[in-house]
């Protein structure tokens, strides 16, 4: 370490803590998203349009719309999340930034968490915020809309975490986009069941607590395992 200090040419530069590195990665990805707004908008508009097409196709049968609402909103959220996944690591892989991340003194898992955090803020959070508005088209009442938002608030970070594993494993593979969908969508099934289930349970008067708790448990599990699995995938991609 002494040798390293002696070699610091500027002498005055401060060192960042590990949390500082995580936040720097997240901030950079948010800044990039801000500069390429179209990518963020594509995901959001995809979600809005898919969800809005169903009431148009089915017609104003309120009872039917109320039944299909949780499933449609959740499936649309899954597909919208899918749409943004192949760009999660691809740009960093192509321009060499990923190599620098692997060589960073900070643990790679931490940098991956920073990237997933930014991914969720850019693609997950907007879906959560706009979902109640779209839910109105399905004649959901205020309580059900609240549960829908809450289930998406717990569920969308889960989608980003699981998706990151798939994105890392298919990195640099030709035709990776299709493979990514085949790999990730089955892993999304538990999130879909408990997320849509929570809203359905609330509508039918059973109470959403059980489903939401299980969804939160899945999120806790993914927070622990997904960065680790993603890191392993990225290292394999770079070898």
């Amino acid at each position: 370490m002494k040798q390293a200090d002696a070699l610091n040419q500027a002498g005055t530069l401060a060192e960042l803590g590990t949390l500082g590195v995580l936040l720097a990665v997240a901030r950079r990805d948010l800044l990039l998203a801000l500069r390429r707004k179209s990518e963020v908008m594509t995901v959001l508009f995809f979600f809005v349009i898919v969800v809005s097409l169903f009431p148009l196709g089915i017609g104003p049968e309120m009872a039917l719309l109320r039944i299909i609402a949780p499933g449609v909103l959740w499936v649309a959220a899954l597909l919208a999340a899918m749409l943004s996944l192949n760009r999660l690591f691809a740009a960093d892989y192509a321009d060499g930034t990923l190599e620098q991340m692997v060589l960073s003194p900070a643990p790679l898992g931490l940098l991956v968490i920073g990237k997933i955090l930014a991914h969720w803020l850019v693609t997950g959070l907007p879906l959560v915020l706009i979902a109640p508005l779209l839910g109105l088209q399905y004649d959901l009442d205020g309580r059900a809309l609240g549960v829908l938002m809450l289930s998406l608030l717990i569920g969308t970070p889960l989608l980003s975490l699981i998706g990151a594993i798939g994105a890392a494993l298919t990195l640099g593979v030709r035709g990776g986009g299709v493979l990514l969908s085949l790999l990730t969508l089955p892993l999304y099934i538990p999130a879909l069941i408990f997320g849509a289930g929570a809203v359905e349970a609330d509508i039918s008067g059973l109470g959403a607590t059980g489903h939401l708790s299980l969804l939160a448990a899945l999120l806790a599990l993914a927070c622990f395992f997904a960065p680790w699995a993603t890191t392993a995938g990225l290292r394999i991609a770079l070898e």
Partner: peptide, 29 residues
């Protein structure tokens, strides 16, 4: 390590690139 690729982002400015690259190495500029 400086590879074939520059590891810089086209959308970011030179200053932003420098600062994020430094942050990755754990250094605040």
């Amino acid at each position: 390590y400086l590879g074939h690729h520059n590891a810089i982002k086209e959308e970011l400015t030179a200053l932003e690139n420098l600062r994020t690259t430094a942050a990755l190495a754990g250094i605040a500029v």
